[in-house]
Simulated scan of single mutants.
Amino acid sequence: MTAQIRSMSTACSGCGSQASTIVATGQDYIYHGTEDNFRYVRCDGCGHFYLNPRPDISQLSLMYPANYGTFSNRFQGRANLLGRIKTIVNRKRLKGVVAHLPSGGRVLDVGCGNGELLIALRQARPDLELFGLDWHFPVETRNTLERQGIGVIEAPLEAAELPAQPFDLIIMLQLIEHLWEPEESLRRLVRALANDGRLLIETPNTDGWDRRLFAGCAWGGYYFPRHLNLYNFERLAELLCKVGLGIESQRNLPAPLIWVYSLQGAVQASFGWKSSLRKLFGVKNIPLIAAFAFLDSAAIAMRFTTSNQQAISKKI
């Protein structure tokens, strides 16, 4: 059974304008929690991309059902290889930042999901104080993290009570796009950073070269109805500077899962969600994911913009 998600019209979170142009319409092609149609718009004032209307925050349990990837056993079996690869890749991307953390440094992973990255950080740097924040932790996940000495904060970021002692590093991997109030949420995190503390963000990039292939409905970066705000390099940098952060680096990253989600969406938009073709483009198809990772890596080498980006910024 599917449910209807209660949604409300909203203004641009970038500049407050009500004027916008529809750029895409689509459905929840991944979890099929609802048959509702959703639309992505581009602000006529500043060019920001956002979901409008967007689900009310009270609809979290419908947007993120029990079988949502980081809440369930969806990545068991062969797909566990993807989880291990993902952890290795994330550790490599964080290595330079983590290496500069002081002994006993404090790290917060916002939107930590099943906590795999925090557990990997615990193994790499046992001296660090680690905390994970997410709106929901299954009991098994909570128990696993607490056994590792990792603090757990269970609440939406917009309402979370953060520890008083500041953090040296805050990580937001594929999270800012899920926020109802990205600017205010970032301001809260900046206040929670130590002087010279860093914020590391990874998020989809609307300038990705592959978005043009699926722009009208199926691009995986839309991730209907969970991605509420999307950025390119310029708009993300503007937001980070606006909340008191200085940009240290921005770079393109491979986006193999966005490719997979795009293909899933395209098949379903054309043939329906029960089409057997969609099974070819699932997260368990490791060779396909590896192929898209290679394709995007080659695109980056040729200075193309991909559908995934990283920004490292410092409190100023």
Rank of each mutant, 00 (worst) to 15 (best):
G96S: 09
G96Q: 12
L81T: 10
R78S: 01
H100Y: 06
V98T: 14
F75K: 03
A66E: 14
G83Y: 11
R91P: 00
S72L: 01
L81Q: 05
L82C: 00
H100I: 03
N73C: 01
K95L: 09
T87A: 15
R84E: 09
G96W: 05
L101R: 02
G69M: 04
I88K: 12
R84W: 09
P65K: 00
R78E: 06
R78M: 02
L101I: 05
F75V: 04
L81R: 08
A66P: 06
V89M: 06
F75N: 13
P65Y: 01
G96C: 06
N90M: 07
K95F: 10
N90P: 03
K95I: 01
T70S: 15
I85L: 12
A66K: 11
I85M: 12
L82A: 14
F75C: 02
R91C: 12
R74K: 03
L94K: 03
T70W: 03
H100T: 14
G69V: 08
K95N: 09
H100M: 07
L82F: 14
F71R: 13
N90G: 10
K95A: 13
L94A: 11
T70A: 07
G96K: 08
A66D: 13
V89I: 15
V98Q: 06
F71K: 14
K92M: 06
N80L: 08
T87H: 07
K86A: 12
G77T: 00
K86L: 05
G83W: 09
L94S: 11
I85T: 04
V97H: 11
L94R: 04
G69E: 11
F75S: 07
I88Q: 12
S72G: 06
R84K: 14
R78C: 00
P65G: 05
Q76S: 14
H100F: 06
G69I: 05
A99I: 02
L94E: 08
I85N: 01
I85Y: 09
L82H: 10
L101N: 05
K92R: 11
N90F: 07
A66L: 08
Q76W: 01
R74M: 01
R78V: 01
V97P: 04
F71G: 06
F71H: 14
N73K: 10
S72I: 02
T70F: 06
V98H: 07
K92F: 09
A66Y: 04
G77N: 01
N90V: 04
T87K: 11
V97S: 12
R74D: 01
A66Q: 13
F75Y: 15
V98A: 13
T87D: 12
R91M: 15
Y68H: 14
G77H: 01
G83D: 11
V97R: 07
P65E: 04
S72H: 02
N80E: 15
N80H: 13
N90K: 12
F71Y: 15
G69P: 03
P65C: 01
F71E: 15
S72F: 03
N67C: 04
K86R: 09
V97C: 10
R84S: 14
G83T: 11
L81W: 07
R78Y: 01
L101F: 04
A99W: 02
N80V: 00
R93Q: 10
